[in-house]
Design a protein around this nucleic acid. Structure first.
Lengths: 334, 334
DNA sequence: ATGAAAGCGCTAACAG
DNA sequence: CTGTTAGCGCTTTCAT
């Protein structure tokens, strides 16, 4: 059995109430007894039982975090931001990897609720979050973040994908490119929509004709990039620049291009989106749009913390962070 | 206030004990009352309070996980293994990113103890774990894993680095290489020692002269690889193969080689260790030693689970997992 | 300044 | 079968 305040009380010849007071720095306890109690508790190797304490104080410094897949190039950085800020405010994190499965997500939400977390930070697996809302029932605050965030989510940290895509196009046109194709897997999420819309709008504003090539085989990531480029090579004169929905697709595009003996960036510039960790390796050197990942995590926890502090009915807020251009060697002046 | 069994009891006109029994599927309760209680609990939207339950049952299905840095190419995969197995056994995970700081590690250990986790999975920040042992005082089981695991750690999941390095050398010599240099940052951990020893022993067995080039500028990762190769180029005839302590260093080596106009693998073969996520990208194509990362996580939790099940005094166990060769395009026959 | 008592939400004997 | 009672480890009035 672990040592409890009862043990300390017995040892010190005082009541448990006295021990509690001494240990929590309350004023209504004599200085000498306090010191003695503290000394004894140290001698006995006492570790406070937060669980028991929280039961009575109804305070709880644990926050649940739900992430679709921690082994991606994106989420670990976000988690770092969350973790760092959590330490700052003294929160403990319960992390669940939902494996991009609604089933798993639902299960985790239940577990978190049962474990009485104070709030939830979730990067949803799908656009539809009704199963989450249904279980949580407004009992604790939730902040949403990540790729599936959409306007229907009340409290969220988003990134301005529309603006990010425009940044990419403006940079490319500034380099003299006119024939810029965007390659995309599908239009599944608001993130994708925004990037495509930003590309389209930016092209129009420059008086250029936008062309988005979608993949209809259900491919994602690198494979999707490879396949898209192969299709383009087969059916059309090459564009001077390719803007990919994300870095993984861009890398796939570079692979397909080099496989066909086409020089990057001399013949075709390639631009990605996300700035995943290895985009900056010299061997890859992918020009891309950087996302404030760490900051996303920070803000998510910051916002949750605010909601936990204020009176329960804080107004809902959406925070939108701005992406930035990262120029490397996969793009060049035409 | 959230709904409690008291609310259900009142609503159903029974005692809280009856509710508890009904909800926990105990036999000594009438089938009709059970059904009614369950229906009401559902209507009221009851979520069991695990915290309170654990206080009385003294059971706890939460496990603390400490990782030096979740935003690396290695740990996320290990965490996946832990997470998956945790779900299987119904454990919830408290994750702490210790940022490779002893300070932070100590703090997390405290928090975990206060939150009364059932056990701990830790990938220590340093070889010295006395601060951990001191706080935990054998009160709960700990399983160690990761790069700093050494023979002093009683319960651990390790990977056979000695054997892994031999695998690399044997493969390289099989390709006809005789002049194989190993590059290493320092000899800080047992992992590093084992890899260097494995390399040295394998070379000797083939009747070849081992040569390990250390970096004395305190560099790590890619920069260290770059610097090591530059030194070698400056001071010595080129070896036909370079075996790097880890993939990041290998990638740095490839960078430095290509910067000097030396073809990989035609002029020099490069071999890494770890098989980090992007080693397999065609643009990198690094031959390396794969580590069972996911499995490490699985086994760690599995072992902890075993210790949690058995009588507390289970014998201590060390598990050693075997690495495997991954051949790609950075190495070739001489 | 200190302690007795009540109670957080729940389970576990033990009676009835 | 069902309810009463006690108590997990801790905090918090409220007396003393």
């Amino acid at each position: 059995m672990r040592v409890t305040i009862k043990d300390i009380a017995r040892e010190a010849g005082v009541s448990t109430a006295a021990v509690s007071k001494a240990l929590n720095g309350q004023p209504d306890i004599g200085e000498t007894t306090r010191l003695r109690i503290i000394r004894i508790s140290r001698e006995l190797g006492y570790t406070p039982n937060m669980i028991a304490r929280n039961l009575v104080t109804k305070g709880n410094k644990t926050i649940g975090v739900l992430i679709p897949d921690i082994s991606t190039p994106i989420y670990p950085r976000i988690y770092k931001g969350i973790n760092e800020t959590a330490m700052k405010y003294g929160y403990t994190l319960l992390l669940g990897d939902t494996k991009r499965s609604i089933e798993s997500e639902k299960k985790y939400i239940m577990t978190m609720m049962e474990n009485r977390v104070a709030g939830l930070l979730v990067s949803p697996v799908s656009n539809d979050i009704s199963h989450i809302v249904q279980v949580v029932r407004g009992q604790i605050p939730i902040i949403y973040f990540g790729g599936k965030v959409n306007d229907a989510m009340q409290n969220s940290i988003g990134i301005d994908n529309y603006h990010g895509a425009m940044l990419a196009v403006d940079y490319l046109t500034g380099l003299g490119h006119k024939d810029i194709i965007m390659i995309c897997d599908d239009l599944d999420t608001k993130t994708r929509h925004d990037r495509v819309d930003g590309y389209t709008e930016a092209m129009k504003r420059k008086g250029l004709k936008p062309l988005v090539v979608f993949n209809n085989e259900g491919l994602k990531g690198r494979q999707c990039g490879v396949s898209a480029i192969r299709h383009i090579i087969a059916g059309r004169t090459l564009p001077t620049a390719v803007f990919a929905l994300n870095d993984l697709m861009a890398i796939g595009a570079m692979e397909a291009l080099s496989e066909a003996g086409i020089q990057v960036p001399e013949a075709v510039s390639v631009m990605g989106y996300d700035d995943i960790s290895f985009a900056s390796l010299p061997m890859i050197g992918l020009s891309t749009i950087w996302q404030p990942k760490f900051k996303t995590g920070e803000m998510a926890l910051e916002l949750l913390h605010k909601k936990l502090q204020d009176d329960p009915v804080t107004e809902d807020r959406k925070i939108v962070l701005q992406p930035e251009l990262r120029i490397r060697t996969s793009t060049c002046r035409i």
